[in-house]
């Protein structure tokens, strides 16, 4: 069941009017230009026990991504492929509007939207994650933990998952008959990733499009849309969100904006990954 949100974060009327009147002048409440995302901070190897991890700040939004690798059984219809899953938790410490309990529709949507773009790109080379064909494969669990919500959880979560996957190490293992003995202290390689994508989330406020909406901007937005953009500039996923509609022209403009912003996110990921180990925790 999906309900019209009836417990909406309250944006004071004064602030709402200010957001709207600034947008008319091409300005934003936090001083950004319409096409300007917030600063991205990425810390890779954030956790020791996860096979891959990243801590990401997008402005004041904070997300942790943890990648765990486990040996398990493949799906019956894909016996020679590893398994890849994305899961998101909107834990209650992140926002007054998050409640404890199983993932709600927003958390489910976020994880499915991220999962789809990796899957459709064939980003993770699942065929290389088979250990005993038909019997044992690596299961890649990407868990996204939202810990501070200031809007645009999607871009932040996607960046966190990408940085974590790019720095994921496969544990050492030995095949003994039909069993796989895992040695988490050892490493047998890095996770094979052949494609990458970032999401760029765009909000429509009045007749204006803005990139990377903050929470206040998200709440007052008429409509929102996110495009997954691959390294080579293809579109690897779209999700329209929010309660309003957009014209086809607005959507095409949003797509152009997304294509122009995506390299900024990729650069931030590259800088963090190439610098790995240098960043403090």
């Amino acid at each position: 069941m999906s309900f019209t949100p009836f417990r909406i974060p309250i944006v004071p009327q004064l602030k709402k009017n200010m957001i709207l009147s600034l947008i008319e002048k091409g300005l934003r409440i936090d001083g950004r230009r319409p096409e300007e995302p917030r600063p991205v901070k990425i810390v890779t190897h954030y956790l020791d026990k996860a096979e891959g991890s990243a801590y990401v700040e997008l402005g004041k939004t904070k997300v942790i991504a943890g990648v765990k690798l486990e040996v398990g059984e493949p799906f019956r219809d894909m016996p020679d492929l590893g398994v890849f899953t994305v899961h998101a938790e909107f834990v209650p410490l992140a926002s007054p509007s998050f409640e404890p309990g199983p993932p709600d529709e927003n958390a489910i949507e976020l994880s499915r939207v991220i999962d789809r773009s990796y899957r459709e790109l064939g980003a993770v080379e699942l065929e290389k994650l088979s250990i005993i064909p038909g019997k044992k494969v690596w299961i890649v669990w990407v868990d996204l933990y939202i810990i501070d919500h200031d809007g645009n959880l999607l871009d932040a979560s996607m960046i966190a998952s990408l940085a974590a996957l790019k720095t994921t190490r496969i544990p050492g293992f030995k095949v003994e008959g039909d069993n796989v003995v895992v040695d988490k202290e050892a490493t047998s390689g890095t996770l094979p990733l052949k494609e990458e994508a970032v999401y760029v989330h765009i909000a429509k406020i009045g007749d204006h499009l803005i990139v990377d909406p903050s929470l206040d901007e998200e709440v007052v937005a008429d409509s929102r849309i996110a495009f997954a953009v691959s390294r080579d500039g293809r579109i690897a996923g779209i999700q329209k969100m929010g309660q309003g509609g957009m014209t086809i022209d607005e959507i095409n403009n949003a797509m152009e904006l997304a294509l122009s912003v995506a390299p900024k996110y990729f650069n931030a990921v590259d800088a963090a990954v190439n610098n790995e180990g240098n960043e403090g925790r």
Binding site: R116, E120, I235, A236, I238, Q239, G245, I248, N252, M255
Partner: peptide, 28 residues
């Protein structure tokens, strides 16, 4: 999904990969 008289797209998702040109054509 569209409200065609209003000219508004109200549902849009993409599962798969398209070039920019393909996307514009698909919307049309």
């Amino acid at each position: 999904a569209m409200a065609t008289r209003l000219g508004k797209v109200v549902l849009l998702q993409l599962n798969g990969v398209l070039s920019k040109e393909e996307f514009v054509k698909a919307m049309d």
